[in-house]
Design a binder for these strands. Structure first.
Lengths: 110, 110
DNA sequence: CACAATATATCGGAAGACGTCATATCGTTC
DNA sequence: GAACGATATGACGTCTTCCGATATATTGTG
């Protein structure tokens, strides 16, 4: 629905926001985004998993394996204190960005 | 101010919108964006010029050289009919995208 | 005469999204 | 029981776009 380019830079924010509500695993995060956007926004697993890895490396998320045989193991992610700070920053940045683009498109004149 | 990733995918929309108001040259477009965003949004010339070339190749913009000796020549860009259609599409896409991200961040619940 | 601003342009690098492939389990359909 | 879709994780290579660096050229200021 939306171009890959437009989507760039928004996934970190979305993942952090979802993981701040509850612990989630990769596949579940993808489904959550799809559900809440009513199918308009979809990120492929080939995008999601590297992103989760990156956020964990940056200590914004903490992952843990959950084994529930004979099911396939899942890796659940929890937001860290640092992740919460980053989330608030990125929320601000996002709304700031949106209002900036808006003001270039339709300048409040004079 | 904003990360390169967040900015990706928005420049086409901005350029088309500005060129739909008046004919502009590359350097001027950069300055316009900077002015209207009050310095918060800046695209480098190494981003702008390839973008203009691309939009012209896609026939969304029509460029023409304006020589005013002894000044450096300028290439002015005018939006095409096709460009206007694309602009309206991208405006819709943008507002749609913003509301989609918003709804994932803060779902209208139940 | 150095420097900032105006003006156009190319090159290579970085980062993120994606398609494809691989692996594995479970439930449904044929 | 074979085929398929959903659930679940992961690697690899490609594409696009933004950016820093570099180059060229003119005008005005200090």
């Amino acid at each position: 629905m939306f171009s890959p380019e437009l989507k760039k830079g928004s996934l970190d924010l979305l993942v952090l926001a979802l993981c701040s509500e509850e612990d989630l695993h990769g596949y579940g995060i993808g489904k959550r985004i799809e559900e809440r956007s009513e199918g308009r926004l979809v990120f492929r697993v080939s995008t999601l998993y590297p992103t989760l890895k990156r956020l964990e490396e940056k200590k914004l998320l903490a992952g843990r394996w959950v084994e529930r045989p004979p099911e396939r193991r899942r890796r659940y992610y929890k937001i860290t204190a640092r992740g919460r700070r980053e989330l608030e920053q990125q929320r601000d940045l996002w709304s700031h960005y949106v209002s900036t683009i808006t003001s270039v498109l339709a300048p409040r004149n004079a």
